[in-house]
């Protein structure tokens, strides 16, 4: 379990990193936390000719708030996200999600952006980016471009980046003070990849749900943002009969994989159960936070 030979560059700037990536002709890889990449390299599933280390590039290790969005830099570790005061104040759902991300040693090294790029359909950060209308900023020798999260996840472990591009930051929505949220994940052990997971946010206006966001993971080739489910909930009171409707819709709609840990049927069942729990939580929280504003 030793990697094939590769070159290594500790890039000092974005331009140095993108030039090295371009020069590698598509065989280079970016490394920040290495928590997904290193096992793949050690298994020789990935054989990059060069690893471009971005940890020494200044300014990528910050979480900043711009209006209603948080911008998370490429070297921000999970542990930093989990303990960040802006996240605590403006994105409690992300804190909930963080409880399910691997173990402390992994969280100390692994990065938010790296997890999104890895695009594991059962990992929390890709789904959260999709749920929170994320925008991914990528750099290459051609300059900077923005990719909407909805266009980013193409398949299991496949993202929309060109081989010579790398992500410098990701922006996601914060939650408004009157927004309730629910995050429900089930895995075989604490910290494992999800067998299924549901995340949702909503506000209550005039007794009905509004601004509904709803996403699932672990039940498809990519994380799923489900507009059809959002539409079912929008304008309604979250009641048991509405939840029945949601799980029925999910049952018809989802086509999960069967793998070692869960069959497609069980995953579908689980997605329904977790969706109900997440929506109940979100409704309860929205009810408690009703009428709250930024001041």
């Amino acid at each position: 379990m030793k990697p094939a030979p590769f070159d290594y560059l500790a890039a000092k700037s974005i331009s140095e990193a993108v030039e090295a990536l371009a020069a590698s002709g598509g065989d280079g890889k970016i490394i920040a936390g290495g928590q997904s990449l290193m096992p793949m390299i050690n298994f020789r599933l990935v054989k990059p000719t060069i690893l471009v280390d971005i940890n020494r590039i200044g300014g990528l290790d910050r979480i900043e708030k711009h209006d209603d969005r948080l911008r998370i830099g490429a070297t921000v570790r999970h542990h930093m996200t989990a303990t960040d005061v802006l996240v605590f104040e403006h994105l409690p759902i992300l804190q909930d999600a963080m409880h399910h991300v691997a173990h402390l040693t992994v969280r100390n090294r692994g990065t938010f952006c790296g997890s999104v790029c890895h695009a594991d359909p059962a990992a929390e950060m890709p789904m959260m980016t999709l749920l929170l209308n994320g925008t991914i900023t990528a750099w290459s020798v051609r300059g900077e471009r923005q990719i909407a999260a909805s266009d980013f996840f193409l398949g299991s472990l496949v993202n929309a980046l060109e081989p010579d591009e790398f992500v410098t930051s990701i922006e996601i929505d914060t939650l408004k003070p009157d927004t309730g949220w629910g995050f429900e994940e089930f895995s075989r052990r604490q910290g494992d990849f999800a067998l299924a997971c549901a995340a949702t946010t909503l506000r209550i206006e005039d007794g009905v749900a509004r601004s509904v966001r709803f996403a699932l993971m672990g039940v498809g080739e990519t994380p799923l943002r489900l507009a059809a489910i959002e539409e079912i909930i929008d304008g309604k009171t979250v009641s048991e009969s509405l939840l029945d409707q949601v799980s029925e819709a999910l049952n018809d709609f989802l086509q999960p994989n069967t793998d070692l840990h869960a069959s497609a049927d069980y995953r579908r069942h689980l997605a329904g159960a977790l969706a109900r729990r997440a929506l109940r939580d979100a409704w309860k929280r929205a009810d408690l936070r009703k009428g709250k504003t930024d001041d």
Binding site: H103, R188, R189, G191, D192, F193, L260, H261
Partner: peptide, 28 residues
């Protein structure tokens, strides 16, 4: 509750890493 070495019908071991062969962790 967790541990099982699985060979598929082709005789291949499919629990070839600790992500698939699940040992108990502290929370178990």
């Amino acid at each position: 509750l967790l541990e099982e070495i699985v060979h598929d019908d082709q005789g291949q071991v499919v629990t070839a890493s600790l992500a698939d062969y699940l040992v108990p962790v502290a929370t178990s």
